[in-house]
Amino acid sequence: MTASYRGGELVAEICRSGFTESLHRGSVAVTDPAGHRVAAIGDADHPVFPRSSNKPMQALAMLRAGWEPASEADLAIAGASHRGEPVHLERVRSVLGHAGLGEEHLQCPPDLPGDPDARNAVVAAGEGPRRLYMNCSGKHSGMLAACAAAGWDPGAYRDPEHPLQRLITATVEELTGESVGAVGVDGCGAPVLAVSLTGLARAFSRLVEAPEGTPERRVADAMRANPILVDGTRGPDHRMMAALPGLLAKGGAEGVHVIAAPGVGAAAVKIDDGGGRASTPVALRALTTVGGLAVPEGAKPEVDALLWPEVHGGDQPVGRLRTLL
């Protein structure tokens, strides 16, 4: 059996009122546009579960299965971890509806929307959790649509031996350039495939460097053209992609984040404690300092806010998260 992730090095600290309050350890892999690793911190070689950072590759497999989305926005929601905002629910319904399916076919767990305003609206209306609101319902709707397009059993689409899941495995192995190290069950109930941070970064480099019009490029372009669908109004992926056109960003649970830019390369991060607050700053720092990603003057305020997120005491900023790359 392939060895599991072994842990990383000190990559970030939280400073409150001039005092170092917390430390984050993790690992980083940076690849160039050709997918060759140019830098690594910690364990960039052993597999991790990328969780939702695998979604762009899963969306690519859906296209390869024969799914033709009704719009590029529908393709984007298939690669998203949405927040249950109305714009997200509209797209999930579109994917299902064009495939002749409904919410009852989804096999992700019921949940409340992740966006606070959307969640409050649902609760105020007296509603409870629904599968539609779950942040992976876009991926699940795309999987169902791919099954409908290919003539595969939609009732078993989460089974690792289902034709769609086998195609996803082959797609992940092709893009990462390595064998899947482990197969687990993701939080949404679908299979999650373990690959190294190096392989993950390589895959994202290949998505953004793919020739225009290819399925790989379609996935990257759809997500970049619709960043609000990828993780919502307040989400870091939306904020990064809106501030830096051309950037592809996708976070995952348990402290994983991957970002890539054409002509620059990609950075993949795993934070050892599984927390998400350090993953975005560390990934962005790695791609700007090691990868050489240029930040236009007009984007610097938003990028700086993502690179050095504030720590608050009461309602005032009293410190920041500081990356240590």
Rank of each mutant, 00 (worst) to 15 (best):
T2D: 09
A3Q: 14
S4P: 14
V11Q: 04
V11Y: 02
E13Y: 10
E13L: 10
E13I: 07
E21S: 07
G26Q: 08
G35C: 09
R51M: 02
S52L: 01
K55F: 02
L60V: 01
R64H: 07
E68G: 05
S71N: 13
I77R: 06
I77C: 09
A80W: 10
A80M: 05
V87K: 09
E90D: 14
E90N: 14
R93I: 09
H98C: 13
L101A: 14
G102M: 08
H105W: 06
P110L: 04
P116I: 09
R119A: 15
G126W: 14
Y133V: 12
M134C: 14
S137E: 12
S137R: 15
S141C: 14
L144H: 00
A150V: 06
A150F: 07
W152S: 06
D153F: 00
G177E: 04
V185T: 15
D186S: 09
A190F: 07
P191D: 13
A194R: 09
R202E: 13
S205F: 03
V208H: 00
G213S: 06
A222D: 02
A225R: 12
V230S: 09
G232M: 00
G235Y: 01
P245L: 11
G246H: 05
L247T: 01
G251W: 00
A261G: 10
A261F: 12
P262G: 11
A266F: 04
A268G: 12
V269S: 11
I271K: 09
D273Y: 10
G274P: 11
G276N: 13
L287V: 11
L287R: 00
T289S: 15
G292M: 02
A294L: 10
E297Y: 10
A299F: 00
W308D: 12
W308G: 07
P309C: 10
V311D: 07
H312Q: 02
V318T: 13
